[in-house]
Simulated scan of single mutants.
Amino acid sequence: MEWTNLLSEWALPVVISSILVIGHFRKVPVYETFILGAKEGFPTTVRIIPHLVAMMVAVSVFRESGALDLLLKGLRPVFDTLHIPSEIVPMALLRPISGTGSLSIMTDIFQTYGPDSVLGKIASVMQGSSDTTLYVLTVYFGSVGIRNSRYAVKVGLLSDLAAAAFSVLVVYWMFGV
Rank of each mutant, 00 (worst) to 15 (best):
K39R: 03
L72Q: 04
L71N: 01
E32Q: 13
F141P: 02
G41E: 03
E9S: 11
V15I: 07
L52K: 07
I35H: 06
R63D: 08
V78W: 12
E32C: 08
R147W: 00
Q111L: 12
H83Y: 13
M91T: 02
Y135S: 05
D80F: 04
G114R: 00
D108P: 14
V15R: 06
T4E: 14
N5V: 13
I122K: 08
T44V: 09
L52Q: 12
A58V: 02
T81G: 12
G66R: 02
N5T: 13
F62W: 05
S17M: 02
S98Y: 02
Y140P: 03
T33K: 10
I48Q: 02
F25L: 08
H83A: 13
L158N: 11
R63I: 09
L12G: 07
S86C: 14
P85R: 10
L6I: 06
R147E: 04
L72H: 04
L169D: 11
V61Q: 05
K121M: 14
A54H: 12
S130E: 00
A92D: 00
K73C: 06
T112H: 15
A58S: 07
R63S: 11
F79A: 00
I49M: 11
G156L: 05
K121R: 12
P90W: 05
V14A: 04
Y172P: 00
H83N: 15
L71E: 02
Q111E: 14
E64I: 11
A163F: 05
V125I: 12
A11L: 10
F141R: 06
S8H: 10
A165M: 07
R150Q: 02
A165V: 01
Y172G: 03
E2L: 10
I97V: 02
A162D: 10
V15L: 08
S8P: 13
G120C: 12
G99A: 07
L134F: 15
P50K: 01
I16D: 06
G114L: 03
E2G: 05
G156I: 01
Y113P: 12
G23L: 06
H83K: 08
K39V: 06
F42N: 11
I48L: 10
V155D: 13
A11C: 03
L72R: 04
Y135K: 09
A38Y: 02
L134Q: 06
P77W: 05
T44N: 10
L94A: 04
F166K: 13
A38N: 03
T138E: 13
T44L: 15
A163N: 10
P43E: 04
F175L: 09
S60I: 14
F34G: 02
R95D: 00
F110L: 11
P50G: 01
T44Q: 08
S167Q: 08
Y135C: 12
V170A: 15
S86E: 14
G101M: 15
G99Y: 07
D116M: 14
G128Y: 05
E32N: 10
L169C: 14
T81W: 15
D108Q: 12
L158Q: 03
T138R: 15
I48F: 08
T107S: 13
V89S: 02
V30N: 03
A164Q: 03
A38D: 07
V57N: 10
I16H: 03
S60E: 13
V170E: 11
T133V: 06
R47S: 11
D108G: 15
K39H: 10
L137Y: 07
I97G: 01
T138I: 11
F175E: 07
E9W: 14
I48E: 06
K154S: 12
Y172Q: 02
R150N: 00
R76S: 09
I84R: 09
V153S: 01
G74L: 09
